[in-house]
């Protein structure tokens, strides 16, 4: 069968909502797009542990500490589900980690912003995890089976992440004036980077067309962004806080909130590695990986020795 015919058959399957599985034929570009997207997603989960890990030892109560520990452990788990989904496409774990550590692979830019106060843990939960959920729920129906299945598990776990964040912000907002101010300051810093999490505008998102055709993605960046703004604009009222956007206004005609201009210069600067914490994050990842090398080696050596010992005993 020629490539053209195989491509047609592939597209027919996708159009009929038949999932693509690892051993099925797929266009090379589909495979590459998925490897890039899934590994970036995995890297984001792993790097995403860093800004939050910063606050585990300083959580204000045992309840908050236990929650934050569980959340960070979830992020590690999510990274692992996704790495293993990407590995079904023929890339090795080491290759992916190497791409992360050398800076050739990207991760979500949001994690290049610093967590300056405890309220940031609340804002990350409500906004960053909220935006992630908005992105991830449609990915549960993604055309690639292992990715879709990993996303189902992730979405189930992600919901508590957003709720605990909202709870933190609500407590602070209703607390002392200083706590209220801390919550507002945190929203002021996290709102725009969260809105940018949906990626470039549709007409500047070159991979979107193929991803939509292949049903890797179900909604465009701008569609998801609008949905996110609409939901947050309502929820922030319950918090008794303000989103830092003077142009945020309900538009009756569109049935959506209008919102202010996004600072795309900032977006591209952070993507290119010039965000406030890009260097710090990569350094932390590399340090952890390098300092853990002896553990990985020792574990292999120990397993091999054990195997030889059992073989000898059996002989």
């Amino acid at each position: 069968m020629g490539v053209h015919e195989l491509e047609n058959l592939f597209q027919q399957k996708v159009d009929h909502e038949i999932k693509i599985e690892p051993k099925d034929w797929m266009p090379e570009k589909y495979r590459k797009t998925l490897v890039r997207q899934i590994s970036q997603h995995a890297h984001s989960e792993i790097v995403g542990m860093l800004p939050e890990g910063n606050w585990i030892t300083r959580a204000p109560s045992l309840r908050r500490k236990a929650t934050l520990l569980a959340k960070v452990q979830d992020e590690a788990g999510h990274g692992l589900y996704l790495y293993s989904a990407a590995e079904t496409l023929g890339i090795s774990r080491d290759e992916m980690l190497n791409q992360l550590h050398t800076g050739t692979a990207k991760y979500s830019s949001i994690f290049n912003y610093p967590t300056l106060s405890w309220a940031d843990i609340g804002a990350i939960g409500w906004l960053v995890d909220g935006a992630a959920i908005m992105n991830q729920v449609p990915l549960c129906r993604s055309s690639y089976g292992p990715y879709a299945r990993a996303m189902v598990r992730i979405c189930k776990e992600e919901s508590f992440h957003q709720r605990q964040g909202f709870e933190i912000l609500l407590s602070l907002s209703k607390g002392t004036p200083a706590q209220h101010k801390m919550a507002q300051d945190s929203l002021n810093r996290w709102w725009w980077p969260s809105v940018m999490m949906f990626g470039p505008k549709d007409d500047e998102s070159p991979n979107s067309v193929d991803s939509m055709k292949w049903k890797i993605k179900r909604f465009t960046n701008d569609e998801l962004r609008q949905k996110f703004v609409d939901i947050c604009a309502e929820q922030v009222k319950i918090l008794g806080l303000q989103l830092p956007d003077n142009d945020l206004k309900w538009n009756d005609e569109r049935g959506h909130y209008d919102f202010g201009a996004i600072n795309w210069d900032e977006f591209w600067q952070v993507v290119k590695g010039n965000g406030p914490c890009n260097k710090q994050r990569l350094d932390a990842r590399n340090k952890a990986h390098n300092e853990g090398a002896w553990v990985r080696e020792a574990a292999i050596a120990h397993a091999e020795k054990k195997k030889q010992r059992t073989a000898k005993a059996a002989a």
Binding site: G77, R149, A150, A303
Partner: peptide, 24 residues
Amino acid sequence: HVGSLHAVDAEMAIENARDVYTRR
């Protein structure tokens, strides 16, 4: 089947599976 993971031997694979796939 729920997914996969890396481990040096079966014992470690079960321990890791417990942490990665059965947190709830």
